[in-house]
């Protein structure tokens, strides 16, 4: 028997190793993951059992709820575009700065600051925004938007978008940062050697490679905005037919004891979120992008 085939310490050949089944390992992984999946499904089933098609139809026909659905969808979409627009350059700069290695102390401080919206309680973000727009520069911006757009920010629709953006952009930045970290920096360097300027290399090589990350960042920002409630309550108020988004509707319906309506709206939100997430997953799949990726 060859030396390689014999375990040097025990003298046993690999053939003597007991053929252990992988089943217990895989089953325990499945059970742990399955429990969480079960919790989510159980919550949804409980919601569904609490309402009826009649309640859902009633909710859909209610004018304030229709308004809330539209405001939610439009504000979330605008927030998503703004978040990705900010996250792409920020994530790229942070990622390249880390590789560069210079001024790492400053970078750590900036990095941590960008995480503040993720760790702060949502109410505090709303309160901070409210206070910001009471300061001199904040009041000046209010006057400008009133003059140019015909609407103030605080307690109006722009405040809904700003409150959603304040939180969602932080998640998008984090996602884009990780995306750019994972891209091979050599591709960009090769593009430079081929005659590209930094901006050409970015737009022609880096950004196309980062599209999957952009899609994830956008999805995350959208989903995050749809569920945003705390900052909106404080910064935009909960005024029907004005600053009411779907989470506000749930809150308003609950506060007057109409649990069935609250649950019906909650299920509507679940349906909206599922539709968007599934569409993004389908269009974001490798085949949809073609070119052999």
């Amino acid at each position: 028997m060859s030396e390689a085939a014999v375990d040097s310490t025990s003298g046993q050949s690999p053939a003597n190793l007991r053929a252990r089944s992988d089943a217990p390992f895989l089953i325990s992984l499945g059970v742990i993951g399955g429990l969480y999946l079960l919790l989510i499904v159980a919550m949804l089933v409980a919601d569904a059992s609490f309402t009826s098609p009649g309640h859902l139809l009633e909710a859909l026909q209610s004018e304030p709820i229709q308004y809330a659905i539209w405001l939610s969808l439009i504000s979330c979409s605008i927030t998503t575009i703004l978040s990705v627009w900010v996250a792409v350059p920020t994530g790229y700069l942070l990622s390249r700065w880390q590789r560069d290695g210079r001024w790492s102390g400053v970078r750590h401080v900036i990095d941590a600051t960008l995480d503040i919206p993720i760790v702060l309680p949502p109410l505090v973000i709303g309160l901070s925004l409210l206070i910001l727009f009471q300061t001199f520069p904040g009041r000046w911006i209010e006057r400008q938007t009133q003059h140019w757009l015909g609407t103030p920010i605080t307690y109006a629709i722009p405040s809904v978008i700003l409150a959603q953006f304040a939180v969602a952009a932080a998640f998008a930045v984090r996602t884009m940062r990780v995306t750019f970290d994972q891209l091979n920096p050599r591709s960009e360097q090769v593009a430079l050697t081929l005659g590209c300027s930094r901006s050409q290399a970015f737009f022609m090589v880096v950004l196309p490679e980062a599209r999957r990350g952009m899609l994830t960042a956008g999805t995350l920002a959208w989903a995050r905005s749809l569920g945003e409630f705390g900052p909106i309550l404080v910064f935009s108020g909960a005024t029907r037919m004005r600053t009411e988004v779907l989470p506000t509707t749930v809150f308003l319906e609950l506060s007057v004891g109409r649990i069935e309506a609250a649950v019906a709206v909650s299920l509507l939100m679940v349906a909206c979120a599922l539709i968007v997430l599934v569409i993004v997953r389908v269009f974001g799949s490798a085949d949809a992008f073609g070119k052999g990726v």
Binding site: S187, L192, P208, E209, F289, G292
Partner: peptide, 29 residues
């Protein structure tokens, strides 16, 4: 600057552009 040096560079990992076809690679520069 890198772009002005007029070089051809093939790194060890080749660093091909995963979103482009072979033709687009040859046409890039």
């Amino acid at each position: 600057k890198v772009a002005q040096r007029g070089i051809g560079y093939v790194p060890q990992d080749r660093a091909l552009f995963p979103t482009m076809t072979v033709r687009e690679h040859l046409a890039f520069a």
